[in-house]
Design a protein around this nucleic acid. Structure first.
Lengths: 206, 206
DNA sequence: AGTATTACGCTACGACCCGTAGCGAAAGCA
DNA sequence: TGCTTTCGCTACGGGTCGTAGCGTAATACT
């Protein structure tokens, strides 16, 4: 989570309940107010803590919302539906379901926008949100190779590039569909998307 | 642009130079300060106009930045490179070049994030930014069908869905690569992306 | 028990930005 | 020359920020 003091052994410990209350209050405020009208004073009031307590744990609005949104992606898992296409559709559906929630929509793009001028914030997003998504791509690819649905990796570096490409295509398409086009990434859309993506991947030439 | 008074024939006309100065100052402020630290008072000072003049023309920060960023996408054109793959690569390269500019990165995602809670703003973005991009997809598809590189549209509604899917895939992937993964969408990446996309599209089954 | 150390709640504060009102001056039209 | 609209300027109340200071609460060490 936030920058802890790992070697603190004495003194009053930080309330773990306050953490969860603050993050939950942040998500609630995101739903009701959105990003721009969300104030840290309001979050503190909702959480039942003092504003100063909030500032002692998080550097600012950006970091707080990143942590609050990151918890939404904890539920992402890789289902075993038997085939690569079905696995992808399952993961994309989970991802789309999370993005359909207003606290995710309101918070995610805002912190990404802020991260364009804040390298530390981008690293925080990568570690707590993006990597958690990318891990599913890696796992799904490995399972598909074990099944023989995808050719095994010949070059390690080439494989890494492919994974990055797939990840940007999947996450980017779902995010763009949900937030820019503002239309639901429902099962029908996901099915069409998966078909195009898989056809393109299976035809991997030089 | 902003909401004009179309039937105003008498009185002192609005300075057109002020418009361009304000929008240019907005982009300059986006580069130097980013979205969150950009203030309308600062933009007015940079543009050499009074703050009240700015408020008379734009409702707020969101609308102003949308117009300022929209001008960046004016230069998007559909080059005729002879093949669908080359055309796509050309357009994607233009799009990536625009997104590489800091004023686009800093402003675009921020207003998209704000638009999740503001339908009027989303409509403004769609009309002045998104549609300008989508038009290229439509034109490119039509040209490819004329060349015989893509099957002609059988069902009109199905064709519209396909165009929307392609658009979300292209724009989403480039945006995600540029802003989330924070790595350049250079020619090598674009080439790999186009290959996957086109392979998936040419294999259009039921 | 007693002490040291850290976290907490609370209040107050200067600084900044917002968005608007009001005014006189300027720039075009009839 | 009038009429109309825009412009620049100043000023203002309202809100948020982020921090300082203080007394209190909770835990670890001796």
């Amino acid at each position: 989570m936030q920058s802890r003091t790992p070697a603190s052994r004495t003194g009053r410990p930080r309330s773990a309940a306050a953490d969860t209350a603050i993050l939950a209050a942040t998500r609630a405020a995101l739903v009701e107010l959105g990003w721009s009208k969300l104030t840290l004073g309001d979050v503190a009031t909702r959480a039942g803590v003092a504003k100063t307590t909030l500032y002692r744990r998080w550097a600012g609005k950006n970091e707080l919302v990143v942590d609050a949104v990151a918890e939404l992606f904890d539920e992402l898992t890789l289902p075993d539906r038997g085939s690569l296409a079905a696995d992808i559709e399952g993961v994309v559906l989970q991802f789309a379901t999370i993005l359909a929630r207003p606290e995710a929509r309101n918070g995610l793009m805002a912190v990404v926008a802020e991260s364009t001028r804040d390298d530390a914030l981008r690293e925080r997003i990568r570690a707590s949100i993006v990597d958690r998504q990318k891990r599913l791509v890696l796992a799904g690819r490995a399972r598909a190779q074990a099944r023989g649905e995808l050719p095994p990796e010949s070059d390690a570096e080439e494989a890494a590039r492919t994974v990055d490409l797939i990840f940007d295509m999947v996450a980017g398409a779902v995010v763009h569909r949900t937030l820019v086009s503002a239309e639901p990434a429902d099962e029908e859309w996901i099915h069409g998307f998966t078909r195009v993506l898989l056809s393109g991947l299976s035809a991997t030439g030089p």
